[in-house]
Design a protein around this nucleic acid. Structure first.
Length: 296
DNA sequence: AAGCTCTCCTGATGGC
DNA sequence: TGCCATCAGGAGAGCT
């Protein structure tokens, strides 16, 4: 599940091995993979052909590769749930989930966008070389970005009136955090995800941000050591998951802090994992947040 | 208008 | 054995 650390691992691989290469050809095998490129697959291919992919940037879970010679625009990538950007060694068998392939003029390994579930995608967006490309302008800075302002985030979160986990997953408020790292950060901060954002104290939110940053940083370090340069295991059985996760996917196992069995609860059509003792549920069931009261 | 629900997609898994 | 339901989940469209 690519969240910020997995995407950062991919970015580093692209920066090291793709930057500077000139695109020879583009094959779009599945139009859905370029659905965010509104002019369509042919236009997508035409805008890349002959251009140089220069460098690799990231904000949150989005990647972009500036297009050079001449410098203008950028190719944007999002891995969604199951996307991979791969540089297959010669002789690698074709992948059944190959959606887009880029070949390069120097005969270097092609760049494959492989995506089983096609939640991710590629596109070309206008970019003037400053800030972020137009298409991802609505994405907030991530907490590892110099542009991220802790106090501004603390204030913005407390202005909202939502479950704190909803705020952590809102990419317009703070980017890069997904379901797994949200649960891990909340466990570290000893907060239940349904705590209301507007009722948290400033110091509590500051602590939470620090935990988010720690979790992401530690995950990048682990990803860097246990994954190949460009391969992120979408099945989630990387070393990091086994070794470091405290709550996610650990229902029934003892809390590493207090020993209570980890609980799993439904959350917005998915699951949340937490410690029932370290992270007590808020007393009032979400007041006006979350809509419907139970029928009576 | 902020907050919430729904939808996109495929493969693994479990119940009957 | 085989079929169906459920789950995984990022993000944006659309509704209230």
């Amino acid at each position: 599940m690519p969240e910020l650390p997995e995407v950062e691992t991919v970015r580093r691989g692209l920066a090291a091995r793709v930057a500077g290469r000139r695109v020879a050809g583009v094959q779009v095998h599945h139009p859905r993979a370029v659905r965010r490129h509104l002019p369509g697959p042919d236009d997508f291919a035409a805008r890349l052909r002959g251009r140089v992919l220069a460098d690799a940037h990231r904000r949150g879970k989005y990647l972009w590769l500036p297009l050079d010679d001449p410098p203008a625009d950028a190719m944007i990538g999002h891995l969604g749930m199951s996307g991979q950007l791969l540089l297959p060694a010669p002789g690698t068998p074709p992948d059944p989930h190959l959606r887009v392939g880029l070949s390069f003029v120097d005969g270097a390994p092609p760049l494959w966008f492989v995506d089983q579930r096609t939640f991710g995608g590629l596109s070309v967006s206008t970019w003037d070389g400053t800030g972020v490309p137009e298409q991802i302008g609505h994405i907030a800075p991530d907490p590892l970005d110099k542009a991220f302002d802790d106090e501004q985030f603390v204030a913005a979160l407390r202005r909202r009136r939502v479950a704190v986990k909803v705020a952590l997953l809102d990419q317009g408020l703070i980017s890069g955090v997904g379901n797994i790292y949200a649960d891990e950060a909340l466990w570290r901060a000893q907060l239940h995800g349904q705590r209301r954002s507007d009722l948290l104290t400033r110091p509590a939110v500051r602590r939470l941000v620090d935990h988010v940053r720690d979790v992401l940083t530690e995950a990048i370090d682990a990803g860097g050591t246990s994954f190949d340069a460009l391969y992120v295991d979408v099945n989630g059985d990387s070393g990091w998951y086994e070794r470091e996760l405290h709550v996610y996917g650990r229902e029934g196992e003892p809390c590493d802090r207090c020993g209570a069995p980890i609980r799993r609860e439904p959350f917005a059509n998915r699951s949340s994992f937490s410690c029932p003792r370290c992270q007590p549920r808020p007393r009032l069931p979400r007041a006006s947040v979350g809509g419907r009261q139970p029928a009576r």
